[in-house]
Design a protein around this nucleic acid. Structure first.
Lengths: 130, 130
DNA sequence: ATCTCTTACGACGAACGTAACGATG
DNA sequence: CATCGTTACGTTCGTCGTAAGAGAT
């Protein structure tokens, strides 16, 4: 009777990967252009949704838990697939697949890489921040 | 300079696939246990997010547009990956991968298939509705 | 006339930013 | 004491359900 819902959001995964990479809520929040409290709340809601703690916030070091380490590659895959889905609807000609494949492993760094590449669709996601 | 956001939600994709399969907002809404207006609004927001119409609602027939047809397999891949991500954190023993692989191609029918299988994690998602 | 999708409306919930708090080195 | 993460609070935006409207067979 317990409806676990599994309401995992793409934003939650993006925030989680940012923290997992930086191993810091502060740096992750800075990279995501949001405040720490937002990242904290989002990670907490993600942990609630999946039903397991993902990060070990003991002392000053943020470490991945066992479940968190297992989630990382899968979270990458989800964001990768989501990016592919977004590009699919914009693919009027076949040459877009190259762009997608280029962004796959760097999907969490979408804020700077696409700007450098200057690709048409990705360029629209570039943001000019210090 | 146009920030396209790309705020695609997993729920939107699930709704979209339901409509794409049923080719009907009404039947899709019934299967998803929500009202038609909710599905309509969700699809519309998805179309706004991806920046292209996905469904052709002319007359009584709902048909997939070109972009919509391209999105379907990618949307499946995203939901598949999301399901894999949820299972990853719950994988205490290695035997779960079989359950995941079983659910991949039927991820949009999560409401009934898992109930039949009676798997531990999936069973929590089963809902008892008429 | 009936079925299907859309739009309007009020209400609930989620996420954000600001700000204050607790803990660790 | 300085930094990092959490909690509290008010605002804003999205989604839901109910209900009414437009189009087509």
């Amino acid at each position: 009777m317990v409806v676990s819902e599994g309401a995992v959001d793409l934003r939650q995964l993006e925030y989680f990967l940012a923290v997992a990479e930086e191993l810091s809520f502060t740096r992750a929040a800075h990279r995501l252009h949001v405040v720490q409290s937002g990242v904290s709340a989002s990670i907490k809601s993600l942990e609630r949704d999946v039903g397991a703690p993902l990060l070990d916030r003991s002392s000053k070091h943020v470490r991945l838990t066992d479940a968190g380490a297992r989630l990382v590659p899968q979270a990458y895959a989800v964001l990768e697939a989501a990016q592919r889905a977004r590009d699919a609807v914009a693919a009027d000609d076949g040459e877009l697949s190259g762009t997608v494949r280029l962004g796959t492993m760097t999907s969490v760094r979408l804020l700077d890489v696409p700007a450098i590449l200057g690709s048409t669709t990705a360029a629209t996601r570039a943001c000019s921040c210090s």
